[in-house]
Amino acid sequence: MAVKIVTDTLSDITGDLAAQLGITVVPLYVRFGEEVYRDRVDISSEDFYRRLVNEPKLPSTTQPTPNDFAEVYRKLAQETDEILVIVVSSKLSGTYQSAMQAKEYVKDKCRIEVVDSMTVAMGEGLIVVSAVNAIKKGAGLDQAAEMVRKAHDRSHLIAYFDTLKYLAKGGRIGKAKEFLGAMLSVKQILTVRDGEMAPLTRVRSMRAGLDYLTSVVASYQNRIEGLAVEHTTNPEDADVLVERLDAIFPKARILRSIISPVIGTYSGPNAMALTILEA
C-alpha cells in the first residue's frame, strides 16, 4: 500500500492541485470577530482579501484541532497503513502540535510520521510535491520522511511584502522585526530562516522588487527542481514575474498559487512569494 500524504492549507496546495497529487489537505481557521471560516473551504481567497483590506479589525488565525487531523488519519487508515504528514513550520503555527497529538487518538494499526517542514506557503508546498514524486517512484515512509526532513535546506522562499503592518500586528514577525519602523516607505524582502520569517533586503518599489526576485532565480540557474510564484491581491504583478522568469525556467512548469488567507493575515495585500526548490 502506497504512503498517503497529508498537509495543511498553508502549503498553498488546494483544490485541483491537491486532487491531482492525491493528497489530503487539512484547513487552518481564519476568524473575523465571531465568524470562523476554514481556510479556502468556507472562505475564498478573494473574499478573504477583500475583507482584510476593508474591515477595521484584523482577522486572527488558528491551527487545526487535533481532532481535525485525527479524522483524516482514521479515514486514510482504511486505505493505507503508512501516512506522511508534512506541516507548516512549528515556529509559525501550532499545527505541528495538533498533528502530533492527533496520533494518540488513532487506534488503527497505521504508522503516522509527522514532519515539521520548517517553512511555509509554497516553501512547504514544493516539498510536498517532491514527496509525492518520491513515493510515486517507490519510496517508503521512512525514506520519504527522511527526504522531507532535510528538504528545508533546499527550499528557498523569498517573499515581497508591501508593508510589515500586518506581520507586526499578528505577532509573527520573528527576526524580520529589524525591518520595522523604517522612516522611508520601503518594501521588504523576507525569507524563512530556521523556521521563522527573517529579513533579506529592502527595495523602494515593486519594480525593484521584481528585479530582485528575478536575480535570485537567475542565481540558481540549472539547479532548480521546482519553482512557484504566488500572490495575495495582485495576480497581475505575479504574472509579470512569471513572464520574466520564463527565460530562466519554462513558465509552463512554474506552479502558480495564491498565498493562503492565513498567511495573508500577516503578509497583507500586494504581497508576492517566490519559492525555489533546489535540485
Binding site: Q63, L180, M183
Partner: peptide, 16 residues
Amino acid sequence: LMRLRKPQIIVSDLPS
C-alpha cells in the same frame, strides 16, 4: 488553546 499556544511578546511600533 492555552495548552497549545504561548504568550506573544508585544512589539513596539516605535522606529528603532
